[in-house]
């Protein structure tokens, strides 16, 4: 996919505790972004934006705790660090998680309620074209044991729906998708995120 994207000024971190982080790193690199895998607070200090990948949110939650990353990430999010959460990443960023594990801690960075495994088990996982606000052509979305968005707050912009359910949403510099844009060759959503990063870094400078 040939996408014109302004290369962001800084480095885009990809949370690399568990899950599909390599796929995000390759897509961002193909788009010309400098990337860094984030496993420790030191890694985080060197990035201007963060991608939270798909994987198991309970696993990532456990490892965010042992790596002492919860508080540093929360502080960065509170001060406007752009973030893109896909699938499990969206669960971590949501203000409310239904059917999560007791005590599962999230970042509350976007005002949405999501239900874990809301579409069912793996045999119910699917791929389908969706219409995305701001994109001319349909986007082919891959849903893997996906979380389902059950409600969105007034400050949230829904950018795509599937079967009446929001699947791509934005609030400020927080972008979330319940599907996996890193699993296809269509990089338009990562490009959308890099434009958010570009705007944020330009504003900060």
């Amino acid at each position: 996919m040939n996408v014109v994207t302004p290369a962001p000024q800084g480095t885009v971190g990809v949370l690399a505790l568990q899950g599909a982080f390599h796929a995000h790193v390759s897509v961002l690199s193909e788009l010309g972004a400098r990337t860094r895998e984030v496993r420790t607070p030191d890694d985080l200090a060197g990035v201007n934006a963060l991608v939270m990948p798909g994987g198991e949110s309970t696993t990532m939650g456990y490892l965010l705790g042992t790596a002492e990353l919860y508080d540093p990430i929360q502080r960065r999010l509170d001060t406007g660090m752009p973030v893109f959460g896909t699938c499990a990443g969206m669960i971590l960023l949501a203000s409310k998680v239904l059917d999560g594990r007791v005590g599962q801690r999230g970042f509350g960075a976007i005002d949405i309620a999501v239900r874990r495994n809301g579409y069912g088990r793996q045999v119910d996982s699917f791929e389908r074209d969706i219409e995305v606000v701001g994109l001319d052509d349909p986007y082919h979305a891959v849903f893997i044991r996906a979380p389902k968005v059950e409600s969105v707050g007034a400050d949230v912009t829904v950018l795509a729906m599937d079967d009446g359910v929001p699947v791509l949403a934005r609030q400020g510099s927080v972008l979330v998708a319940s599907f996996h844009p890193e699993l296809t060759d269509d990089h338009r959503l990562h490009a959308m995120f890099l434009r958010i990063v570009h705007t944020a870094t330009a504003t900060a400078a």
């Binding site: 996919m1 040939n2 690399a16 505790l17 568990q18 899950g19 599909a20 982080f21 390599h22 796929a23 798909g54 994987g55 198991e56 696993t59 699938c87 499990a88 793996q122 045999v123 119910d124 996982s125 699917f126 791929e127 389908r128 074209d129 052509d137 349909p138 986007y139 082919h140 891959v142 849903f143 893997i144 044991r145 996996h180 699993l183 296809t184 060759d185 269509d186």
Partner: peptide
Amino acid sequence: MSSNIAGPQGTGTYRVKRGLAEMMKGG
């Protein structure tokens, strides 16, 4: 360009099946 826009649709596709393996990486 647009290689993925019209991919297979539905459940049980190769990409969906392989996708869950991708999600277990590093675990």
